Amino acid sequence: MRIGVDSEVCEAHGQCSIVDMDLFPLDDDGYSAVGPDREVPEGEEDTAKLGVDACPVRALKVLS
């Protein structure tokens, strides 16, 4: 499974990082540092989906 963030949509709410700071790191300004295409470690798929769903502006996506 892969996730990605549209950095032009992210508004630095940080809700994804509250779900899991390791899967959803933030940069120094509070914006998502996930990048456009990140592999989700095996066994973390459900947590990744929760983090994606937590984004109030839908900047995060499940890619596969």
Rank of each mutant, 00 (worst) to 15 (best):
D37T: 07
E11L: 11
D27M: 02
Q15E: 12
G51Y: 11
L26W: 10
D27H: 01
P41F: 09
L63N: 06
E8F: 10
D46L: 15
M1R: 13
S64K: 14
V52W: 11
P36L: 03
E39R: 12
E42G: 02
M21I: 03
S7F: 05
P56W: 08
P56A: 07
P25Y: 03
V9A: 13
S17V: 01
E11K: 14
L63S: 11
E45K: 15
S7C: 00
R2Q: 13
Q15I: 00
F24C: 03
G14W: 04
Q15G: 00
Q15F: 12
V19A: 04
D20L: 07
C16F: 10
V5S: 01
D20K: 08
V5L: 03
R58E: 14
V62D: 03
D22E: 15
L60G: 11
L63M: 10
R38T: 12
D27P: 02
P25L: 00
L26H: 06
G51H: 12
Y31F: 15
D53I: 07
S7I: 06
V34F: 04
G30L: 09
C16E: 02
G51A: 04
A59R: 02
D29R: 07
D37W: 15
D6H: 13
K61E: 15
I3Y: 00
G51L: 11
D53Q: 15
I3Q: 02
V19C: 03
H13A: 00
V57S: 00
S32L: 11
L60R: 12
E44S: 14
L26I: 11
A48Q: 06
G35K: 07
R58A: 11
A59T: 05
V34M: 01
P56K: 04
D37V: 14
H13W: 03
L60E: 08
V57M: 03
G30S: 06
P56L: 10
G14P: 04
P25V: 01
L26M: 13
G35H: 13
K49S: 15
E42A: 13
P25K: 04
K61R: 15
V62Y: 08
D37A: 13
S17I: 01
